[in-house]
Amino acid sequence: MLKDITIGQYFPGNSPIHRMDSRVKLVLTIAYIVLLFMADNIYGLLIGIAFTLLMYTISRIPPVMMLKSLKPIIPIILITSALNLFFIRSGEVLVKWKFITITREGVDTAVFMTVRIICLIVGTSLLTYTTSPIDLTDALERLLSPLKKLRVPVHELAMMMTIALRFIPTLIEETDKIMAAQKARGAQMETGSIMKRAKALVPVLIPLFVSSFRRAEELALAMECRCYHGGEGRTRMKQLKTSAVDYIAIAVMAVFIAGVVVVNHLTKGA
């Protein structure tokens, strides 16, 4: 039941994208977002699409996953395109029926925005598809480490994230077990009204909280026993290293951004 939920969407693999330094991947993902917002017309976005497709091909992530990443934002896409379609009143009028006016500019903007959102989601999903959550928190910690000077507890935050991620599967398993035990005592969790079902969750949530606190205490103790005392002076088992692949990726990204700049310029000139 609950086991079917995938937390994080890491897709293990050994493609060049998987092998990239997670810090570089994170930065390039931000660069990619910038690229999408720099493009001020549909041709610029085509470059973005090309880049996305290229990266997916290299990463060998099944193309179905692109669609899967879009599923949760379908409503957002629909609302944005509808708003643009019906509420932009400038430009050549294409359809006029009662109070509905659709203009050419409206259609253009709607298409443009939709493509941009799709590119945004599909492209950034690649980061979580090819980077394990742990690597990602590692990268975040490294990239944010300058903030330590401002007394932001970067290491502690990253550690908290890592622990949270680590315990999600454990918690799911535990929930499954407790649910089974309460069902065996006649709890009805799959039938009845919403209120009834919500009430039926109490016997699951309370034991879950209790055991989470117990586990947190045990973990804290175990960490202290192994002399953990925060991030000061800790070395890492897995050193993040940039390699040729990362420089190539940076170069490719630079070329695509340059492409967008050129296209923007050309269309403006025309």
Partner: peptide, 29 residues
């Protein structure tokens, strides 16, 4: 209800305020 199942470490399923209420949970259901 004809087959009562006690899981491993069943104490992790306790949730009520009192033991009485917890034992009564199954019969109440």
């Amino acid at each position: 209800f004809k087959v009562g199942l006690v899981f491993q470490y069943p104490e992790y399923q306790l949730f009520e305020e009192t033991c009485y209420k917890d034992i009564a949970y199954g019969p109440k259901n």
